[in-house]
Amino acid sequence: MWHMNWMTNMKSMWKPFANKPPVHIMRCGVLAQVLGILAMSVMLFTKIPLVTVICLPAGAALILLGCLIWAWAVFWTS
């Protein structure tokens, strides 16, 4: 029986649009994206190798992290 209960729990947990997404998590997503865009913009304006090496991966990671937080918060929050 335990696995049936587990399945039911998982289904309800991963049901899209089940509840309103937590605002504080989405705010973290927005902050990550804004910081990521700013980091990438600094790279775009300066084009200095050292700035590029730091800002390109950091900016890309922050933007992707923001996207993931949003995807999770909007579609899969329970």
Binding site: M26, G29, V30, Q33, G36, I37, M40, A60, I63, L64, G66, C67, W70, A71, V74
Partner: peptide, 10 residues
């Protein structure tokens, strides 16, 4: 707005 556009910009 929050995931697709930033991903496209990236």
């Amino acid at each position: 707005a929050m995931a697709v556009f930033p991903a496209l910009w990236l």
